[in-house]
Design a protein around this nucleic acid. Sequence first.
DNA 1: GTCTATATGTCGATAGAC
DNA 2: GTCTATCGACATATAGAC
Lengths: 189, 189
Amino acid sequence: MKVMRETIVSTARELFRSRGYAGASMNDLADAVGLKKSSLYVRFPNKEALVPAVLDLTLQETFGQKDLGSRQWDAEFVEVIELIATTLTDRGRCVGLHLAYGTSDETPIAKDAVRAFFQAHRDYLSSILSRAMPVDVARDIATDTLARLEGATAFVAIFGEKDAMKRAVRLSIAEAQKAAAANSLSSPS
Amino acid sequence: MKVMRETIVSTARELFRSRGYAGASMNDLADAVGLKKSSLYVRFPNKEALVPAVLDLTLQETFGQKDLGSRQWDAEFVEVIELIATTLTDRGRCVGLHLAYGTSDETPIAKDAVRAFFQAHRDYLSSILSRAMPVDVARDIATDTLARLEGATAFVAIFGEKDAMKRAVRLSIAEAQKAAAANSLSSPS
DNA sequence: GTCTATATGTCGATAGAC
DNA sequence: GTCTATCGACATATAGAC
């Protein structure tokens, strides 16, 4: 029976998230989706090609159906970082970060995909924030927010603690609103 | 010629940092230190046993020769997080985090060592901060500081950017001083 | 060096839908 | 018949461990 591509990709994502790039084997993936290894190589030319597929799927699930700009900037900002934080807390690890650490110059396609993945996150947050503050400030706050969320994920992964993630969300929102307020003072609308 | 244990451990650290637990092989380590693989197994019972050795060495290098309490709390806090930040920026990755993501229930000894590693970091920072604020506040700020540093490291690893790390250091210091000031108002010395 | 397990990747054969 | 998805066996390399 035919196995859908998305099944393979999302199963590969689970494996990459829990075991990393080197630790996840094509055999494990084949077993998990109910195929033989050779059938996987019909769909994907090699293991590395799974990485862009996995990250693209994740990007689409995170930002896919949002129509940017239809609401207040801060409502959109809160929604998206809470979505990311919830996913990271539930899954316990970030696939993107695990792949970032697990790829190197020997896997250039995977490395590029990881860069694109984080750049897309930063760009998306930055475009929301820049509606309320200068673009350079928006970019820094977007970066720092992502850094906080990734760092808090480490405490979920290592200790199972979720408090750090809650504080990361709350403090990141507070920082964004503070920057927006400072901006509206210097250049009122 | 005899190869020192510390040479093996610090070389293993480089490998774990760059390739992760699964990606680093005993063969690579043997080649890098100029030994045969069989000689490595004389010193370490298995690959997993390298993990506590690597993390203990790192802990000792980070906190080893400090005598806590001999100076102002904030001078000590700044010094230690700048040391950590500089190491993370220079090396581009955190061994502890790479091992945290790379170990699982199948490697319980490594997993425990990772927990101890991060717990030691948190305890050390927390003990400095608690000289200027309540212990629960100190613990949260210590955790958030480590999370910021780890998250900023991701941007070094992925984009080669060092700015996020600089902001993480600056903002973490500011948060700590703000909490200390709030505490000294409510309970002046 | 040896042994066993397992990794990625290839290729011809095959079973069923139309 | 043909097309598509899958499989089984295989080649080659390298892993951890002794």
